[in-house]
Every structure is written in C-alpha cells, then in structure tokens.
Design a binder for these strands. Sequence first.
DNA 1: CAGACGATATAGTAGTACTTCACACTAGGG
DNA 2: CCCTAGTGTGAAGTACTACTATATCGTCTG
Lengths: 318, 318
Amino acid sequence: MITGEVGAVDVRALEALRAVRSQGGVTRAAAVLHLTPSAVSQHLASLTRQAGVPLTERVGRGLRLTPAGLALADAADDVAVALERARTAVLDAHQAPTGPVRVSAFSSGAELLLPGLLTRLEGSGVEVECTDEDVPLDDFAPLTDRIDVVIAHRPEGELAWSAPGASAGVRVVPLLREPLDVAVPVGHPLELSARADGGVRHADLAGQRWIAVKEGFPVGEVLRAVLAGGPVDGEPPRVVSRINDFHVVLELVAARHGLSLLPRYTCGRHPGVRLLPLLDVRAGRQIDALVRADTAERPVVRRVLSELTALARKLAGA
Amino acid sequence: MITGEVGAVDVRALEALRAVRSQGGVTRAAAVLHLTPSAVSQHLASLTRQAGVPLTERVGRGLRLTPAGLALADAADDVAVALERARTAVLDAHQAPTGPVRVSAFSSGAELLLPGLLTRLEGSGVEVECTDEDVPLDDFAPLTDRIDVVIAHRPEGELAWSAPGASAGVRVVPLLREPLDVAVPVGHPLELSARADGGVRHADLAGQRWIAVKEGFPVGEVLRAVLAGGPVDGEPPRVVSRINDFHVVLELVAARHGLSLLPRYTCGRHPGVRLLPLLDVRAGRQIDALVRADTAERPVVRRVLSELTALARKLAGA
DNA sequence: CAGACGATATAGTAGTACTTCACACTAGGG
DNA sequence: CCCTAGTGTGAAGTACTACTATATCGTCTG
C-alpha cells in the first residue's frame, strides 16, 4: 500500500476544491466559504496527499487546478448535487418551499425582472433577498458561490459562461433575448429616415459618435461587432464615452452627446430618445439565470427559477 | 424558521441510515460500521431532528424505517455513489486497479467460481479475500455491507433480492443459470427408464423419498414447486432429510437414502450418482453477484466483476 | 528594493463525534 | 409470573480533527 492516507474523502475538502476552481484562488475561495485561507489550503493538501497526484499548480503568486484537480472538482459537483437531493428528499418534502433566496441581477436586468419577481412571490413564504451585481462577463459565474440565482447577460450567440472551468457545475437557465436598438435623440436625422424604413441599416451609421459600456462588460462587444461589419464609409467609428449605467447613457443621448446601442425593453421609455431597430444586422443580448447545480436542487430555488422563466416568457411575448 | 437544526446533512449519518436499512436494526448496523449502537442511534436522532418527520418506527423490540426514512436512504445511496466516483476520479485513476477485495460465495458456488476467479486475477495486484457465506435467501443482500462482492443464488424466475428495502442500493450482476437435475443412485430404476427418454418427467417422481435443503435456503422452494406440480400419483412426496452441503447430499443419494434436486455443473462428477434432466418441468437456479451501488464504483471491484462475468460465460458455454 | 499580496506551514484551540455507562422497553422461557 | 437476553435510547466523558492565529516563503508591482 502506497496510499499514505486512507479513509473517506471529506466532503468539505471537495467543497473547498470546488470553491478554489470557481473563485480562482485560495483566498477568494476561503472568503465565500467563510473560512481562512489556511483551512482551504489544508483541505487541498489533504486531497492531494490522498490522490498522489498534484491537484493544483502554482501560476505566478496564484494557483490553478491541474486537469486532475478539475476532474475531481467535477466529481465533487455530483457529490454536492446528491447531497442536496438527499436533503430535499425528506427535509423539505413535507412543507411548501419557503425560506430565504439570494438573487442578484445586473442593473438593467434588475429593473426589468426583479419587481415582477417580487410581486409573484409576495406572501408565498419565499423571502427573496435582492442585490444588484454588475460585473464583467467572466465574473458572473463565480458569483453563484455567494448568490443563489445570478441574473446575467451576454452577447447573444456566444457560448459564454464557458470560462476555463470557473463555470463548471453552473447551470444556465435562459430567460429571454432582448434586441439591441440604436438609440438616437428625438429629431435626429436617422429618426426621420427610419420613419419610412422602419429602422436603420448598417450603412446609415457612418460617422456617428458612440457611447459604449466599459471594457469587458457584456454588451460592449456587440457594438464593436456591429460597427466592425466593415469600416462605415471608410471612416472608423468613434467611441466618445464609456458608461455602464443605461440611465446615464439615455440622458447623454437625449442631450445629443452621441448615439448608443441599448436594450429595447429596458430603455424604450425615455421621452427624449428613440430606439431604432437595426434592419440588416442581428444585435441582441441574452439574459440568463445562473445557478450552481447543487443550489438548483433546493426547492425554494426551483420555485424562484420557475417564476423567473414564466415572467420572462410574459415579457418576451408583450 | 421551525427547522431546529440547520447545517449540512452529515454524510456519516446518511451512511448510518443506509446501514440500518440494509441490516434491519441499529445494533447490526453499528456492527458493520464498526461503531457502537449508541453512535448510530444518535445519527438517526440527528437526521430525524433535521427532517422534522420520524424516519424510524419501533416494531417489537426492533426498528424499521418509515417511508420517509426509506426515501432518504435512497438519496443517501446516490450520495455514496457520487462520493465513490469522486474518489475514483483521481485517487485511483493513475494506477491500475489493485488492492484488497472481499468476495464471498455460497459453498457450491465457491467451488464453481472461486478457483477460476483466483487464477484469472493471479499476479494482477488484485488481492481477492475469499469467504464462504451460505445464508438464507433474504440474508444475502445485507452481506454486501461487509463484503464487496457477494455471489448468491436464487430460484430462477423469482425477482428475489427485492426484500422490503434491504436490497435497495444493491446491484445485481447476473452470472449464470444452472439447471437443477434429479439426482439418483446408479442402477436406480429411474436411471434405466431415463436412458431411453433422455431424462425424467414429473409423473416419474411418484412415491420417492427426498433430501432437501434447510427451510428458507435458496433452492428449497424449487423442489417444493416441482413436486407440487400436482400430488404425484395421489401420494404426497416425502422429505426425509434436510441437508445444506451438497457433498453430503451426494453421499446420501449414492447410499440410496433418497433422491434430491441438485445443480448440474456443481454436482455432476460423483461416481455413484446420476443426474437426470427434468423434461417437462423447468427447474434451475440463477447465480448472481450482489454488489452495493457505491462499492461497484471502485475500479478494483469492477475488475473483479468483469472477470466473474467472463468466467461465468465460459462455464455456461462449456 | 521595498512593499503588497498570494499560498503554505506550524502550533494552539474549540467543537464534535465517538465511547462508555446506565436506563427503558419488549420478547421469550423456566 | 419474574427473570434474562435482547433491543434502542439518553447523558456524561474523552479523544480527535477541523478550524484559527500567527509566522514564513515566494512572486509580482511601484
């Protein structure tokens, strides 16, 4: 027997491994687990000792899971799911799903979905605790360690949420697709030309000044893709501002400081701004709910998800 | 919040619940877990407290799982499987399957299969630890808590191993079917009549004296069923002895103390006994390997099982 | 080269998971 | 009938192990 340490693999150690994978480091993993980095490190050491194979490798001053570590983490996902199923099997079976659920959304998604969600769950015993979390694309998945249901958005078509392994064990529940329109101030030449046509075309966008979101944030790539459909009129498009809050963007557009690409349902009500559909380019964002596989087993969470999808269906239909 | 106890369900408590189900009691469960009954009882209490629903109910001076308890135990099976998968994922991945495996068989099955199994695994690094365990039909499944691979037999056709819940979480790997023949001493009238016919018929068995196995043991029911095909010649068949060891039975048959129903492959080599096939009644026993679902995930165990099935195929073909 | 930050190692501590022991209850016999 | 042998359960004690606190080492940044 070469195996230095025999005995059942510890579930908490597996939990630590999962956290390290999703958070990308011992320190942050420790944070979401409410532990000290030392404890997490010891868990990793214990697992590594049992495996005989290194599960982590140093990269810079940080840490990364080896292929073996990733494999074990995947297995750990199944363990977590099975455990949650066990708890659900009886522990919550006899009573209606109730209790606290942490839900987050990026700000415009929060406006769109959270009020309706709260209304639907009023008096149901489900206590939705809301947060707004607007983060770069790659940072959505790790949030699921702290937050049960993460409402996130991404440029449509992209696989996304497929980060190196950070999003393993995270389930993606598609909610709705929201088209992105060109936002122009009332009275803008494009508005007039669009009145006949029903929208604008790629070629119409020549020489405009644009307001985009900050680098790395979800919808930013879409604007770049639309404009890069070919240098418009030979002249490269200019991005004059980078603003994340759509309300600010709307005000800037209304004040004729530039155009922008904005989601239709969320931004369609500003009196000084018209949203003009893009006729020859397909532009949109996909809104998803991100849930960890084990979290998704909790009946309360399932309830919240079903309300969310129902709500989204209604919104997309209207 | 009514939930008195919050916090993750303990895997060891689930393990205890599983053992109580399969062993049918706290004391025996404690034995297979290498714990005291008190510890097991406390685990049950902990789970019950979290569930809010009683998981066990008293019956006589013993104990039985409630439906809720059975449901939770089923979920616990999945947890155990997931954990074993996790361990396998890495811990044993890099090395060929090796190590100790406990295998048991009922005595005649042991004769039939164990020598071949040991030969096939010679020098493979798999250390097969053999035991012979000949127990009543219902007691085979619980053995899987102490023994990795339990080779058992049952009257063919019966679902069997479907005891109240004791066999939940136990996988059945069919090995081979062995016909049961009528054993007669050489020179017996039936032997002569069978020479032309190729076997005996139900009607031929009138008025014979029979040697059966003890009450409750696997093949006993088959003899009863064969003879009960209708009172043979009006006269009810007489069972004069109850012997479990087939070698003893063979000696008794050879010494003309009665006939018996014996498995063909295992008992066909005695010089003083002829085995005559039953022509108009289908009689046989099914030989299976019983393995707990989580145990079956261990690579060494899978190796042993694959060798066993291969060996059985070869035997059935010959 | 400081200095900040990340992971890890060691020693100490607090909690918990078990055992031990004592008890309550049921079943079966003398 | 009581008595014994069996069952599961509860309370107190103990040993362990899972975590924290603290210190150290390595790596990137200004």
